[in-house]
Amino acid sequence: MPTLAVLTAAGSGTRLGLDVPKALVEVDGLPLVVHAARNLCASGVVDEIVVTCPAGLVDHVDLLLRDDPGVDRPVRAVVGGGTRQESVEAGLRAGLGRAAGTDSGTDSDAGAGGAAGVDVVVVHDAARPAASPDLVRRVVAAVRSGHVAVVPGLPVVDTIKRVEPGADGVGAERVTATVDRDVLRAVQTPQAFDRGVLQRAHAESVHRAGSEHLAATDDAGLVEDLGLPVHVVPGEVSAAKITTAEDLHLARWRAGHAATRDR
């Protein structure tokens, strides 16, 4: 059955200190959104991609991806939202052709986006452009094996302290505990979900979507709020998120290093 991917690319990228939206920032000569879309396609398990982006860039991103030889699946760009949660919801509406809260998957309910039969939805961020095709395959396979929500994650290697909120006059916070890092994972995208579960999770948390303070930072958190299990599969260092200028420098270094190694 078909798999839909929602690729969020609506971030402004202000923390990168550049004058272009984050999704259009280039690494190794290509915009981040193109890298991410190529890897989704190369996985072989994604059938259609909806990209959410700023309103003024919809036509540009749409043409950029449609003209790219490495994007060989149907793809379209739509307007994202003010929060990541709103953007994913917009992508679901566009890709599934119906309200995010309805979990029927019959052909008669399919919208213009070709939602007929979609049973798995992958949610990914253009800010993680180097997440590999194998990682996409891994999360989708885990959902198809019976898990309703699957995320990639890496073991936490730093020592983690729990503190009392609020620093004193010299900026010091009191430590209340050292957290067992063996049971912690740093979560990444792409994340994969049973279609009906993800639609229900968004429908039941729609009151949070418009607030930056309340909106979910990832879709797995919305599924957790339903009381349903979320499972973690091994992530990868290459799936690191690009948020700051330092992240971008590191991503460009890795891309250059990989190109040199492959010669």
Rank of each mutant, 00 (worst) to 15 (best):
V143W: 05
I160T: 12
P190T: 10
L135P: 10
A10H: 14
W253D: 13
A5T: 08
T189P: 00
V163Y: 10
G210K: 07
T243I: 10
L57W: 02
A192F: 11
V148G: 13
V175S: 12
L222M: 14
V25H: 00
V120F: 07
D59A: 15
C53G: 01
D180N: 14
R137N: 06
V237Y: 10
V237A: 15
L64D: 07
V237F: 03
A215V: 01
A115N: 09
L228W: 09
D158W: 08
V183P: 01
D19C: 01
V33L: 04
A115P: 05
A172W: 03
D67H: 09
A255Y: 04
R93S: 08
D72M: 02
A251V: 03
G169D: 13
L154G: 01
L154H: 01
A127W: 00
A99R: 11
V45R: 11
G196Q: 04
C53R: 00
V61N: 13
A116Q: 13
D62Y: 08
G114K: 07
H249A: 12
A115S: 15
D225N: 07
T8N: 06
E26K: 11
R200G: 00
D28H: 10
D218T: 06
D19V: 01
P229L: 12
G70Q: 09
G196V: 01
E224Y: 04
T189W: 02
R38M: 10
A255K: 07
A177K: 06
D59Y: 03
A131P: 05
V20R: 15
G117W: 08
H35S: 07
A115V: 09
V79D: 03
A9W: 04
D262F: 00
A172G: 00
L40R: 09
E173D: 09
Q191S: 15
V78F: 05
L214H: 13
R261K: 12
V156K: 01
R138L: 14
S108N: 10
D59C: 04
D47E: 08
W253I: 04
V187R: 00
D68H: 14
T243N: 06
L24P: 05
H147F: 07
L214Q: 15
V140I: 09
R98I: 05
V136C: 14
A203C: 05
A116I: 12
A42G: 04
V187Y: 00
D194T: 11
Q188N: 07
V143Q: 05
